[in-house]
Amino acid sequence: MSLNSVFADSIEKNSTRRRTKSPNRLAFERFMHNKLALISVIILLLITVMSIAAPLITHQSAWQTSLMQTDLPPSSTHLLGTDSEGIDLFARDLYGGRADLLIGFVDTIITMAIGIVLGGLAGYYSGWVDAVVMRICDFMFNFPFILLIIVIVAIFNVSNIWILILVMGFTSWPGITRLVRGLFLTIRESEYVLAAQISGASVWRIIFKHLLPNSLGPLVVNATLLMAGMIGAEAALAVVGFGVKPPSPSWGNILAGALNFLTLQTEPWVWVPPAALITLTILCINFIGDGLRDAFDPSFEK
């Protein structure tokens, strides 16, 4: 097709009021064609709705202990039996999702916000700002994420879920910061940023209106992977007793409660459901992340 005919074609399209699709619109359409990712979205939504609407699904309490009904096997009243304190496990599995999904969601937002601001400044200014931010990142990388959280949680005696969320959010930003910096460093050199600078746009305007929208793809993909990581991290912390503290239910601490020889051996209904829920949630989020990656970056397709 010659250049003229392309031009004529686009004029014709404009005259028939068919707008050209934006890259993000195209990405969305590609995502909608990815079956695996769509199924994952549906399952994830189902898990989310079930944990938010938990009181509508079960009448059992997720906190009420009952000494007469400890360690019961599954029955019609207790769908997944009861734990060693007589709390209904089906209810705990449902309500537990709230804590994990909340941590995953809020911590992703906190981490992304810190990462975009710090990484954005480092990538935009480079020079000494970049050097300082990157040295802080290097420094943070020396302390394994999980270990740092455990030490902080232990020292400051964190038992509130919101403080746990803050601790997790404020220790996990170096990776995203590095990513944002790298993305911005390359885009910064492009002509439209120069044009914006010349026309007198402020730093934040350039970061949020020019640099950020143009690195949306990798950021969204990494945000989903981060969310999966956060949910996994909560459960990991709970397994060793530093996550959400009982009696508040979380998938991690239900799992932690089952980690003794007898329960593992004889009562699979205690530990298999929370383990499956954690895995399923992380698997779905990872598939969604993969789908988003393919959608935003068509060159990634086979």
């Binding site: 394994p144 999980i146 270990l147 455990i150 030490v151 232990a154 912390l237 060793v240 007793g241 530093f242």
Partner: peptide, 29 residues
């Protein structure tokens, strides 16, 4: 990262490594 990342597993297996004694020390402050 393996050295630090194994904290959870050392806790789970009660494997007396760096992670395990850190966990123990953290609970006992």
């Amino acid at each position: 990262s393996l050295a630090g990342g194994a904290v959870i597993l050392e806790g789970l297996f009660a494997y007396q490594g760096m992670g395990y004694i850190t966990l123990q020390a953290a609970t006992q402050r």
